[in-house]
């Protein structure tokens, strides 16, 4: 009896260890990359990188990208895409500034309208995808292009600057406990969105819809409604990002939000390899955004050539997600 047990376990032990090792790499590899990056840059630029001021600086730079990427995470969690987020951000920023400059609106009112427009565009995206059954890639591309058209109609393509931007700028430049407001906004939103996604029926439904929409429908979840809510959250946060960006630039322009599209997707996909097996989630997205910001910061502080910026962004995404994928494949049969 004893002999049988021994021969049964001895050959399996190394395989089990390997599987466990791959599982750890799959879940913590991306986080490890961030740790290694921080350690390397701290060693190369010890007097400028690893300072409390620079940590706050990196978080401040991450804030807006994090807000829009966390919104995108909701669309991705439900199994959809949203290519209109950059255009929504551009439009909401221009709308907020135009309302203040031309209509004399107060900052809160302008904010509310601009963010509301973001939510409405999200609703439109959701409607087109769920009711008209248009593929999300096509629908959001079309809606985003329409948003650009509206933007040109509103601003005539010209940047909209505020005459007396101090109150507006204070939203970006102001601090509470030494930490800029945008960082607080990012932290609070991350906490709220994490709770929404992981601790509410709606959040669980979203994850169920993204995981297996047929099973979700059979279990009584209103799949279309959940998807629409995902698009609305995505649009709302893209709108919020646009107005926050306007408070940073003391104005807005048609194309100001364009760059958020790729960076948000990159952060969300990188984040899907953080702590979980290829699932989109808030903490992962946050780690993805901060990792990119650390890299951008490092390139400036170390004084690397500009091409490293592109190499870094591309490599980060491929290695981060690639390692996770390989790890999942290695552990799949275990």
């Amino acid at each position: 009896m004893t002999a049988v047990t021994d021969t049964g376990h001895t050959p399996l032990a190394p395989a089990a260890r390997t599987t466990r090792a791959w599982r750890v790499i799959g879940r913590y590899g991306s986080l490890g990359m961030l740790g290694i990056l921080v350690a390397i840059v701290a060693a190369l630029a010890p007097t400028t990188f690893a300072t409390s001021d620079n940590v706050i600086n990196i978080l401040n730079q991450s804030a807006l990208s994090a807000v829009i990427a966390m919104g995108l995470t909701f669309a991705l969690v439900t199994g959809e895409f949203d290519l209109s987020i950059g255009n929504i951000a551009g439009l909401s920023g221009v709308l907020a500034c135009k309302l203040i400059v031309d209509a004399g609106a107060s900052i809160p009112a302008a904010f509310a309208v601009a963010v509301g427009v973001g939510a409405a565009i999200g609703l439109l995206n959701g409607f087109i995808v769920t009711v008209l059954n248009v593929n999300a890639l096509v629908a959001t591309l079309g809606v985003g292009t329409m948003a650009v058209g509206v933007n040109y109609a509103v601003a005539d393509g010209r940047p909209v600057g505020l005459k007396d931007p101090d109150d507006f700028l204070a939203i970006s430049l102001g601090r509470f406990l030494g930490i800029p407001y945008p960082v607080w906004i990012m932290i609070v939103l991350a906490a709220v969105l994490w709770l929404l996604l992981n601790r509410t029926v709606l959040g669980q439904s979203m994850q169920a819809v993204g995981g297996n929409p047929v099973a979700a429908r059979l279990s009584g979840i209103r799949v279309e409604r959940v998807r629409v809510v995902g698009f609305m959250i995505c649009g709302t946060l893209a709108g919020l990002t646009g107005v926050l960006l306007a408070t940073r630039t003391a104005g807005a322009s048609v194309s100001a939000g364009d760059s958020y599209l790729l960076s948000a997707f990159a952060a969300a996909f990188f984040g899907s390899a953080v702590l979980r097996d290829g699932q989109f989630h808030i903490v992962g997205t946050l780690v993805g955004v901060i990792t990119v910001a650390v890299g951008f910061n490092a390139i400036a502080l170390i004084g690397m050539e500009t091409y490293w910026q592109y190499l870094f962004q591309g490599l980060l995404l491929i290695i981060g997600v690639g390692v996770g994928t390989v790890a999942r494949r290695k552990t799949a049969g275990a």
């Binding site: 620079n54 401040n60 364009d258 400036a300």
Partner: peptide, 20 residues
């Protein structure tokens, strides 16, 4: 650093140089 036409990235770049 290349801001890739994005004002937010340009502002981040300036912030990084202030740290430096």
């Amino acid at each position: 650093v290349d801001s890739q036409g994005a004002p937010d990235k340009a502002i981040s770049g300036i912030g990084n140089y202030v740290q430096k």
